[in-house]
């Protein structure tokens, strides 16, 4: 066994990290799109920092994926939209501010929970460093959700109803508990999908406890484990638009690249 094989991850782990990385890539994109459209200049400054943080984190996750044999060209510039494993919550740009905040909040927190569950030497220190970034993202979003729950509770609740089932689907089936979650069994993560689902739900129930906003129930049937594709963490073939992929891959900026 060579040195590389000794540090090889289980195949399911490569898919898991790919999904986190692609979600963060899209988070960077969505933060960027909203960078000039927040209600306060301060939201935009924070949003710009969040976008930069996400892109920096993606760079490191891609570095690890390349070490696991994932093709660099494919990762960065040769993928079709349906080959991105981002959370479905980010497939479309939100149409207004409260919807964007719910979209980004649920997704960023979920990506963090999935990342923090990883228990592998290749991530030593790196996850801690990412957590230093994430504190500010999650605190900003929760602060914003609190104010929006006061000023626009209907919009927040509608966005939660739309995105909560989608983010549960991305996390994975409720049947993946501590005893059966394949990545926990493989020793790659130390927190099961079922546990992460519960943690996410509990967080928002507490956050909105004294507001008029109701959090959708933690539906154990979403996603259907028989329909769930572990590679893209979805039950359907939805994907981000081709025009967004062109931006992610820098297609229109290629003519300016200095080789």
């Amino acid at each position: 066994m060579n040195a590389e094989a000794e540090t090889g991850w289980p195949e399911a782990a490569v898919d898991y990290v790919q999904a986190i990385a692609d979600t963060k890539l899209l988070l960077g994109q969505r933060y960027g799109e909203w960078m000039l459209k927040g209600p306060h200049l301060e939201d935009n400054i924070s949003g710009a920092s969040n976008a930069q943080d996400e892109i920096g984190q993606v760079r490191q996750l891609f570095r690890l994926l390349k070490q696991q044999g994932v093709d660099e060209e494919w990762l960065e510039s040769e993928r079709a939209p349906e080959e991105y494993a981002n959370a479905p919550t980010l497939d479309e740009e939100a149409e207004n501010w409260p919807t964007f905040v719910v979209q980004a909040a649920l997704t960023d927190r979920t990506a963090w929970l999935l990342l923090d569950a990883i228990d592998h030497d290749d991530f030593t220190g790196m996850v801690q460093k990412m957590g230093e970034d994430e504190y500010f993202h999650l605190e900003h979003q929760d602060g914003r959700l609190e104010t929006l729950a006061e000023s626009q509770p209907d919009a927040v609740e509608a966005a939660l109803e739309r995105y909560f089932p989608q983010i549960l689907t991305f996390i994975g089936p409720a049947t993946y508990d501590q005893a059966s979650d394949p990545l926990v069994n493989a020793g790659f993560t130390d927190r099961s999908v079922a546990d992460i689902r519960g943690a996410l739900h509990e967080h928002y129930v507490e956050l909105f406890a004294s507001t008029d906003v109701s959090v959708p129930p933690l539906d154990g049937d979403v996603p259907d484990p028989d329909q769930w594709d572990a590679k893209r963490r979805r039950t359907d073939d939805g994907h981000v638009e081709a025009s967004v992929v062109d931006q992610l891959q820098g297609v229109s900026n290629k003519e300016y690249v200095i080789e």
Binding site: D116, D119, D121, F123, T124, V127, Q128
Partner: peptide, 8 residues
């Protein structure tokens, strides 16, 4: 987290 945290 045991392995992901190190002392700065």
């Amino acid at each position: 987290m045991s392995v992901n945290s190190v002392d700065a």
